[in-house]
Design a protein around this nucleic acid. Structure first.
Lengths: 152, 152
DNA sequence: GATGAAACTGTGGTGCA
DNA sequence: TGCACCACAGTTTCATC
């Protein structure tokens, strides 16, 4: 796989706004509409472009509380790890979950309505998963930056 | 602002795939194409839908290393805070940055090619920002879950 | 990668409940 | 206010060069 400069520019444009017409893109890139169409198809087929999604304003859908939650398991047997990861992936409040190096095993990004809902999430959902040793939560005071755009 | 069940279903569908035609959406929702079109326009105008973007496979664009980086400032004067936030927002390697509660002031999600590039990022970019007291990095071993879909 | 044609979709007007 | 129907302009998509 090799991406030339045109591919990279195209990816940059589509990461910013994927609803642009091929005609608009063709103007920026100095190509024909078909050439743009074929490059996009190529990038999709190569799996460089995963999918196209609508991003919402979380405050407007009443989800204003973001927290990062560290989790440590009591043990690290494969059984426990697999089970925890499967259960946590099911929780819709958990937008992201990573297995990380350091004092804790996992870091989770959790999105809920408010502090009260976060408490409910912790008590009734997260800590209901077995084999969790300890957790440590950090609350987001302010979102400084949040982008889905990868520099290519 | 009030979102009915149809709006919520529509948001769920568009968060999964925003390239679906209004016709396909109208079939799922049991509405006419125009009705779907008008609801989407409404959600855009209300600012519920922020934008439409292409999501990339980070491995396919040679960005396989994710790290979370805690940052503490030496002081918390407004001047220092504003300056740090402005500088960090400019760094393309930083996908997310949050001001958080707890021992550290900020948590950053950093995406680069590999460990070596991370080192370069830390030495030549992040710690070049003034007034940083200390940092603490955690490396992602495995991505368990990563979604942009907010449950509505 | 360009051109041109066919099929389809987005978009806005009008009317109905 | 919200939806359905209709029609046109513009877009996607594909065959051909």
């Amino acid at each position: 796989m090799h991406l030339d400069q045109t591919d990279k520019t195209l990816l940059k444009l589509l990461q910013k706004d994927c609803k642009q017409t091929n005609k608009a893109l063709s103007n920026v890139l100095g190509l024909s509409v078909t050439a743009v169409y074929e490059r996009i198809r190529k990038l999709e087929n190569l799996g460089v472009i995963n999918n196209y999604v609508a991003l919402l304003n979380k405050e407007r859908v009443d989800k204003s509380f973001v927290a990062f939650c560290h989790v440590k398991l009591v043990q690290h047997s494969q059984d426990y790890v697999v089970k925890f990861e499967r259960e946590v992936a099911k929780l819709q409040e958990v937008l992201e979950c990573y297995h990380i190096s350091g004092d804790y095993d996992y870091i989770l990004k959790v999105l809920v309505k408010d502090m009260q809902e976060f408490r409910t999430f912790m008590v009734e959902k997260l800590t209901k998963i077995n084999h969790i040793g300890s957790t440590h939560s950090m609350f987001v005071i302010n979102e400084v930056k949040h982008t889905t755009t990868i520099s290519v």
